[in-house]
């Protein structure tokens, strides 16, 4: 359990540091930050019991990973999860931006859609899974639909409020300079919304793996969460630990990438 806690703590500590200061953490500080985790893993390897049923040492995790890779289970599950995640991310961000834009630009649309959106938003994502499975079967389409229904909100809400807050003079300036309606959207409104899109995307990325794994674990997916459950049910503790590390690393990389991008945008857009 220690390793999990440590890993999460390291991931959490890394994220706010970049957010707070706008200074991106250097690779060196990042490596130093991982030291406690490394120490725990080394200690575990050295002092752990190699045949322990629940806490097998890290070297056995590696063996389990190689086996799962060779059997093709791991590549298949990983690809499936990454595809689900990527498609869910893209659709959430694109649809969230479009809907948020419409809602933020027009009081009429806002009023017309609000009850419906509130209804969907208050629905917990696990509850959507069974219905989506009935409609789409155990397919990637089902997973993506659930992902979007669960993850569209942070983008949609951030973009809608950002659209409402674009200074009126900025839009008037576009008209005065003779920009066509399309150019005003492309060159004035869309870039104005970008920081909000990035803020939303950041939340989507950090929650995206949770939802992707949730779908698997509820029993309606074929990704890495499914593999995790299968391995756990066959008492393969080493594989379970190994999968946990893989999931943690994937989440960490995705979060680091999106926060680097977000920081860049927020810096460039500060007025």
């Amino acid at each position: 359990m220690t390793a999990v806690t440590e890993k999460r703590a390291a991931a959490r500590a890394a994220a706010p540091a970049t957010r707070r200061s706008g200074l991106s953490i250097t690779p060196l500080t990042f490596v130093i930050g991982l030291t406690p985790l490394v120490l725990v893993l080394v200690g575990w390897q050295v002092f752990g019991d190699p045949v322990d049923f629940t806490f097998p040492p890290p070297s056995t995790w590696w063996e389990a990973t190689k086996l799962m890779w060779a059997s093709g289970e791991l590549p298949t599950a990983l690809t499936r999860t990454l595809w689900t995640f990527a498609l869910g991310l893209v659709f959430s961000v694109v649809l969230g931006t479009a809907l948020g834009w419409l809602i933020g630009a027009s009081k009429t649309v806002d009023r017309a859609l609000s009850p419906l959106l509130d209804f969907f938003r208050s629905m917990p994502s696990p509850a959507i899974v069974p219905v989506a499975t009935i409609v789409f079967g155990v397919t990637i389409r089902m997973s993506v639909v659930v992902m979007v229904l669960a993850l569209i909100w942070p983008v949609l809400l951030a973009v809608a409020s950002s659209r409402q807050n674009i200074p009126t003079v900025r839009l008037e300036m576009g008209r005065v300079l003779g920009l066509s309606g399309f150019d005003r959207m492309r060159k004035v409104v869309l870039p104005s919304l970008l920081p909000a899109v990035m803020t939303g995307t950041r939340v989507v990325v950090s929650q995206g793996f949770v939802v992707a794994l949730l779908i698997d674990i509820i029993g309606a997916g074929a990704g890495i969460g499914r593999l995790l459950v299968v391995r756990q049910q066959s008492f393969d503790a080493a594989a379970v630990w190994a999968l946990l590390v893989i999931i943690g690393l994937a989440g960490l990389v995705a979060n680091l990438l999106v926060s680097a991008l977000d920081n860049r945008v927020q810096r460039g857009w500060r007025s």
Binding site: P167, V169, R170, E172, M173, V176, V188, P191, L194, G268, W269, R270, S271
Partner: peptide, 13 residues
């Protein structure tokens, strides 16, 4: 006609 607004209306990016 050119317009200069009190709030500048510059594009921050």
């Amino acid at each position: 006609r050119g317009v200069v607004f009190q709030q500048y209306a510059l594009l921050p990016w």
